[in-house]
Amino acid sequence: MTRPAGQEPHIELEGLRFQRDGRPIFEDVSLSIPRGKVTAIMGPSGTGKTTLLRLVTGQLLPERGSIRVDGQEVTGIGREALYRLRKRIGFLFQHGALLTDLDVYENVAFPLREHTQLPDCLIHHLVMTKLQSVGLRGAARLMPSQLSGGMARRVGLARAVVMDPELVLYDEPFAGLDPISMGVIVRLIREINEALGLTSVIVSHDIEEVSQVADWAWIIADGRIIAGGTPEELRGEESPWVRQFMHRLSDGPVPFHFPARDYPEDLREVPR
């Protein structure tokens, strides 16, 4: 498997093994994420893409293997160091995960108020510039319940980058959005990445959008990395698995059916 060439890695995973409730999620995952680029991690639902992000932020501990962010080992560092590390990472949740008792402005201001002693006028400027960049300056005084799904995600994005992190993790940023909001998010991810010179990691299964925005993509399945390359390279990939994923074939190495017993057998037996 090739590595993104000529790039200094920002995140490096090596020999990662993780299981949940006795079910192995990752068998042996090694990958590196280049600094300053947009990297996508793709794979079908249930392959543990989100789990991977949680491992990177130290919310979960791997069973084996190492996770290095900025050369610093994440597994087994103390909580103080972990919280310091998290301040340098922006995280966009699938649904924005705004604090529902604060309005849009306060949500974006929240990390600043928590972690810095900045005067109010400076906080105001920072919040307004971030809201301006996601196009929601006018929505500053709305409550999260008044926002649409796409808007909530944009506010989440503004909050994720308000501390000027070096690394932003996007958890399914395109899931469940209408085409216009999707386009907006694609543009924002690209723009923010270039304007702030940060490293972006996108976890997604939306091939189209990822192809538009990512410099590099890894594909995960069955607990391991099965391919890596630029989106164009992956499209041309010959392996049946990658073909199935990139070309949206319903059946292939990934079966359509969840493992089950014989179909007639299931029909015959009435459950108690």
Binding site: T57, F91, F93, H95, A97, T100, P111, E114
Partner: peptide, 18 residues
């Protein structure tokens, strides 16, 4: 409970707030 379901508690953790 509602905060947990809305992922707000996870969000706090990733913002570096306990």
């Amino acid at each position: 409970g509602t905060m947990k379901i809305n992922e707000e508690i996870d969000a706090l953790r990733t913002l570096g707030i306990s």
